[in-house]
Design a protein around this nucleic acid. Structure first.
Length: 114
RNA sequence: CCAGACGGUCGGGCGACCGCUGUUGCCUUCGGGUGAUGGAGGAAAGUCCGGGCUCCACGGGAGAACGGUGCCGGUUAACGACCGGCGAGGGUGACCUCAGGGAAAGUGCCACAGAAAACAGACCGCCUUCCGGGCCUGCUUGCGGGCUGGAGGUAAGGGUGAAACGGUGCGGUAAGAGCGCACCGCGCUUCCGGUAACGGCGGCGGCAGGGCAAACCCCACCGGGAGCAAGACCGAAUAGGGACGACAGGCAGCGCGGCGACGUGGCUGCCGGGGGCUCUCCCGCCUCGUCGUCCGGGUUGGUCGCGUGAGGCACGUUGCGAGACGUGUCCCAGAGGAAUGGUCGUCACAGCCUGAUUUUCGGGCUGUACAGAACCCGGCUUACAGACCGUCUGGCAGA
RNA sequence: GGUCCGGUGGCAGAAUGGUGAUGCAGCGGACUGCAAAUCCGCGUACGUGGGUUCGAUUCCCGCCCGGACCU
């Protein structure tokens, strides 16, 4: 996974992001982004509910979201944000290039990247 | 060749780039960097059983209750699992299925239908006889026939039902009946085989004892409770509580308050009492003002437990088998909002479309199951695209 | 990780092993000038697969689904 300092782990952290974040949906995922007003690295959380499928499908969805975010992070900075990526039923089937495109679009819509 | 039965194995391979994580070597500005190496399953699943491990109760005995298992022998750490037999049922067969002890200890149930549903009895029948009953009738005038009532014999026949107190045949009889006989079934039993369940030959008994125990139950055997969120340590924080209800406190000493009489649920001791140890009893142990209900306050960090084990693989010996024993060799996941991956290429297989001259070769597209460790192990159950191996059975054809 | 319950018409909710009630809702009829209320009638169910039994919603076993609790 991402370095552990860069992960959201507590339920309270997820709730804080969900309450105040800017949200954007896409066919492959839903993004919640919260600006922290500092220059620390971004902190990431993943949410994949049982609606997505059994444990194999949920693991696959979370890993593809993580991989897509890693690809995007390589060519643009995400400092100063808390991000929560929510998996949907389409996350596992959607082809990877389209998933990355979805992620770039929602990052732009929530103002994380210009 | 077709159809089938049983047992077992695998369940994508190779490569490239980019990542996560355990262990370990080196470097380090102690943040980390870098190299090597390991990284999901046959079911990891359901949690239906059994055990290891940990804590609690752990004292002993008797009885009760509760739960489970249930042909016999074996395997095993143990089991409700497995193996080999036996019996019953199914299949042409290979084989498959079975919670398969006890119904002459007791209780209960057997709807509807049927005369009758468990202990013998008798609705329609069948037969005999009597009161020479009553009524009708024929004529040979003291006999016959019919209907009907009473007494008795019988359980063959009738039909109902899942099931009707042995079945079929012959004899027998007034009519009948294991009343007698033969065969079949059933019960008891000598002997023989087998460790046993059980089986076989024979003899005896004329038949008694319907079914249901996955109804209560009886018998035999087994079982203390909870579970890694067990539990241990380090660190942090808060509190040394409050309300209501019930009860049983007493005495002595000390303390505290008071000038004092005295008061006091503060402490100690003794007696009594309460609570806990599944229930009851006896002794025993622990604890204390006790018990019950509710409210209030703090912590959700880290380390260990945590993988050398009833372990895997190979070979040998032994056993019909489940397995057992011996030798050698290997170390083989360890996360914690939870790693074990993502993308691409190629090969393999299957399906569809399509091109060339059919066989054959080529191109394109799609698909490749069920499913994710959370302390560990042995079973069971359930899910699963497809591929392969072995043994056997039945049928057809050919030599 | 573990423990324990429960699945009956569209909804709620009973039923000693033998015909599965009842209420609300729905449909049809009666009543009414038309409706409501009332009355009469009708349709619709035992989660699923096996087993025991003559016979299973009920008893036993395996699955599926839902829920509660331990933290």
């Amino acid at each position: 996974m991402f370095p552990h300092s860069a992960r959201l782990k507590k339920r309270s952290q997820f709730l804080a992001v969900a309450a105040r974040a800017r949200k954007a949906p896409a066919p492959g995922l839903v993004l919640q982004a919260l600006r922290r007003d500092d220059d620390e690295p971004a902190r990431i959380g993943f949410t994949v509910t049982k609606k997505v499928g059994n444990s194999v499908a949920r693991n696959r969805a979370r890993r593809r979201l993580r991989e897509a975010l890693r690809v995007v992070e390589r060519d643009m900075g995400l400092e100063g944000f808390d991000l929560v990526l929510i998996g949907r039923s389409g996350t596992g089937q959607r082809c990877f290039a389209e998933l990355v495109g979805d992620l770039r679009r929602v990052l732009h819509k929530t103002g994380v990247v210009p």
